[in-house]
């Protein structure tokens, strides 16, 4: 019996890892990544490539204990890679984040195509440990690495017509199997008022747990606005645009009754189909109680003034 076992030829005996990885990369480029790249056992290519980042702590961080890397990187909503929570971790490996270009357009003095290095270079990175509240009534605590969104936007010199800023996610069906189905308006797009965007809590995140972002969390750069429901924090940004008028948003177009432009976390305004008063804290197991949801996800001191003359029930 032993001999028979020894004679079994495993794939790893024929193909060394480098060749194997190259081959995988080729398959990914060919756009058939969804077909079965969920190999287990081998460390994933994407994860092996995550680079450590230099960060400094921030006064805006919560002292709550962050969720595990496992929870944060396997329980994701990123519909470009599928609709189930575990689809992004399985399929986002096909996302190519290098090279990466961000187009700046609209009401500003310095529009143009900027490559990722130029976007990131001037900004020192901070660790921002933020609560994340999903519109689906669950929450996590996430140690992001990033820098203030306002610092980035100022560099493009928005003009006096710039009342809003909007963002777009990459829309490439060869890398993102999910966009072949039009469940949302692709590319995914989101927006903020300029006042919201300039708030020091709003950041561009490029990392998680001290390393560059895993693809499923929105690599190479994403928005994080912790006082709003998670869907506002758009991932894998390829375009930033300044406008006079309030921009469209993907969820707003798909279900305007359910997802407003502001989407501030608000326990008093329910989603039409479920309550927003309490939230399920991810990572607390089967027997933990839900926790009450806080107005502005607990960031009222920093952001409530932005909405002092706004009816938040109407402008949900």
């Amino acid at each position: 019996m032993k001999n028979i076992n020894n004679n079994i030829i495993r794939p790893v005996d024929i193909t060394d890892e480098q060749v194997y990885l190259k081959r995988r990369h080729f398959l990914q480029l060919a756009g058939i990544a969804g077909a079965g790249l969920a190999f287990s056992g081998l460390p994933s290519r994407a994860e092996a490539e995550l680079k450590p980042l230099q960060t400094s702590p921030s006064k805006y961080s919560t002292d709550q204990t962050p969720n595990s890397y496992q929870d944060i990187s396997t329980y994701n909503n990123y519909y470009e890679f599928g609709l189930d929570k575990d689809d992004p971790v399985r399929y986002a490996k096909s996302l190519i984040t290098d090279p990466w270009t961000v187009k700046i357009s609209g009401e500003c003095d310095k529009p143009g195509d900027y490559n990722l290095e130029d976007i990131l270079k001037p900004h020192p990175l901070e660790e921002r440990i933020y609560r994340l509240r999903c519109v689906e009534a669950w929450s996590m605590v996430i140690p992001w690495v990033g820098f203030p969104l306002g610092d980035l936007l100022k560099r493009f010199q928005p003009n006096s017509n710039a009342n809003y800023v909007s963002f777009k996610t990459l829309n490439d069906s060869t890398q993102m199997p999910g966009v072949r189905r039009r469940v949302l308006r692709w590319p995914y797009h989101e927006g903020l008022t300029m006042a919201e965007a300039m708030n020091p809590l709003a950041i561009i995140a490029v990392g998680l747990y001290g390393k560059t972002l895993p693809n499923q969390n929105g690599a190479p750069l994403r928005l994080v606005v912790p006082w709003k429901y998670g869907f506002k924090s758009i991932k894998s940004i390829v375009e930033i645009s300044f406008s006079k008028k309030q921009p469209d948003t993907s969820w707003g177009r798909s279900a305007p009754r359910e997802y407003g432009f502001y989407a501030n976390v608000n326990p008093e305004v329910d989603h039409p189909r479920w309550s927003q008063a309490r939230e399920r804290v991810i990572g607390t197991g089967l027997f933990a109680a839900k926790q009450p949801t806080l107005m502005f996800n607990g960031y009222g001191d920093e952001v409530a003034h932005l909405y002092s003359d706004l009816n938040l029930r109407k402008n949900f």
Partner: peptide, 10 residues
């Protein structure tokens, strides 16, 4: 495993 959100999954 029931994943990151075990109650929902169950």
């Amino acid at each position: 495993s029931l994943g990151a959100n075990p109650i929902e999954e169950l």
